[in-house]
Design a protein around this nucleic acid. Structure first.
Length: 444
RNA sequence: GGAAGCGUGGCCGAGCGGUUGAAGGCACCGGUCUUGAAAACCGGCGACGGGGCAACCCGUUCGUGAGUUCGAAUCUCACCGCUUCCGCCA
């Protein structure tokens, strides 16, 4: 949630900073709304005070057995509660309006984030490739993962079976079979093991269906509901205040992991927390018709190993570097060429203050494609979630939250297939995955 | 699904219509004592929001939401969650 004090204390500068994120704040409208809220709040609290004071006096009079005085006081308060009620209702209404606005303003980018309008203005930080030789050059025409996966077969049909996905569910679903299905599983195991054994993470198994509070905590709601798959509750117990109460399929394990600290005081000595989980992710991909329609790049359901950090504010940027390094480590162990991009203001996600994307080399597309996104959300999610810790001065303060993919499993499979393909269409299994695949060296 | 009980501050726990934000304890912070530490003793100590330059003042908050009342942690209703017993189940 956006920090309202920034708007109250420094409206002009804050509105200008948000402009870099393509977010327009109507300054005059906000000022008017705030003025109204302030007046109403003062008036309401005044009335509440009146009621409280008089009621307390009634109690005192009754305790003193002064019935006449009690009756006089009762006559005096009689009209107050009604006024209080009316004011409270009006105040709640305007506070809702303020709140709704706050919930739809994106996080403020850090000062060092490059200003730009879209992904073309992201800034490359570094590149990596095995022995620093650059991406492998092919002596034959490199195929994409679709051609490779459809040509590789099992007795049950293609190892990447896109038609079966369509038949079972529709577009953007894929069935994997045989060795490729196993490599997909191997990749997730390998990533999880690496983060747990080498990067100090705590492995978590988490729900894939979460409630609206969780989705609000990490920022998917209220603004991005159309991107989520909804799970309506059974009719009988779904009604709350007249509205159907939905649950949602997680679009990323970030939601489940980060919300673990929702409404909690995190002990100081528990920070930083490093949490990881392997989960499926569900995205409706509304508004991306026509983009990446071929293959496994953009699916409604995909697996991901997620990293989440819960950190002290002063450490969060260092943790972002660490987390990005963890994701890079996976690509390095797999021998996949990649580059690290610092996202510009226009390309960052709603909750992020600073984001690095990892882009892996895809030879068939002759380009780098996003395979991980690591973000420092600072206190943005923590404020929404009520995730706090007691700082050195003994004051409660929101924690900082960070999340990153480590990595997207389906896209990693695509990258391995394309980078490790052989002229005959077989795929060499990267060394680090072989222990997870019964020693298998080549997929054919 | 049936029956019973319970949700109070960082934690435990009392209160069950009226000067109660809430006894007591633990934890925490300061002080005395001590060579130091511990113990003992003294004092402090919830959160969120609003107003004010400030000292400070005010409001909200006892699972959540409605209701009764001049006044609700306390009474009523609904919902959520937890515990125990029975049934069912991977």
């Amino acid at each position: 949630m956006f920090d309202i004090n920034l708007l109250r204390n420094d409206l002009a500068a804050t509105a200008e900073a948000l402009l870099k994120r393509n977010t327009v704040i109507d300054v005059a409208a906000f000022e008017a709304m705030e003025a109204e809220r302030k007046a109403l709040q003062i008036q309401t609290q005044d009335l509440q005070q009146q009621r409280n004071t008089l009621s307390k006096a009634v109690g005192q009079a009754k305790a003193a057995k002064d019935e006449a005085k009690a009756q006089a006081l009762l006559a005096e308060v009689a009209a107050v509660p009604e006024k209080v009620k009316a004011n409270e209702a009006a105040l709640a209404l305007i506070q809702d309006r303020v709140n709704t606005l706050l919930m739809t303003i994106p996080n403020l980018p850090q000062a060092s984030v490059p200003i730009g309008k879209d992904s073309d203005e992201n800034v490359e930080q570094r590149r990596w490739s095995p022995d620093n030789k650059g991406p492998r050059s092919f002596a034959f025409a490199a195929k994409d993962h679709v051609a490779l996966g459809e040509a590789l077969t099992t007795t049950a049909g293609a190892q990447l079976d896109f038609e079966a996905g369509v038949k079972l569910s529709g577009a953007r679903f894929t069935v994997m079979k045989g060795p490729l299905a196993r490599m997909h599983r191997a990749l997730a195991q390998f990533m999880l093991d690496t983060h747990v054994n080498e990067h100090g993470f705590t492995e978590c198994y988490v729900p894939y269906i979460v409630n609206a509070e969780s989705m609000t905590g990490t920022g998917q709601l209220p603004k991005f509901e159309e991107d989520l798959y909804k799970v309506p509750m059974p009719a009988d117990d779904a009604i709350e205040g007249g509205a159907i109460k939905n649950r949602y399929l997680i679009p990323t394990a970030e939601v489940s992991l980060t919300n673990l600290v929702r409404d909690t005081m995190v002990p100081l000595d528990a920070l930083p927390m490093r949490l990881t989980a392997h989960t499926p992710c569900f995205r409706s991909e509304a508004g991306s018709y026509g983009r990446d329609t071929r293959g496994m790049i953009r699916q409604h359901q995909f697996d991901k190993v997620e990293m989440v950090y819960i950190s002290k504010p002063e450490e969060s940027n260092a943790m972002l570097e660490e987390m990005t390094g963890n994701a890079e480590k996976i690509l390095q162990k797999l021998g996949l060429p990649y580059r690290v991009m610092l996202l510009c203001t226009g390309d960052m996600g709603f909750t992020a203050a600073r984001t690095y994307d990892l882009e892996v080399w895809l030879p068939a597309q002759n380009t780098y494609r996003e395979i991980s996104s690591c973000s420092n959300c600072e206190a943005f999610q923590a404020r929404r979630m009520g995730a706090r810790f007691k700082n050195a001065a003994g004051k409660n303060e929101p924690v900082h939250t960070l999340n990153g993919s480590g990595l997207a499993v389906g896209r990693t499979l695509v990258a391995v297939m394309e980078n490790y393909q052989n002229q005959d269409g077989s795929i060499t299994v990267p060394e680090v995955l072989r222990p997870y695949m019964g020693g298998l060296e080549v997929i054919r």
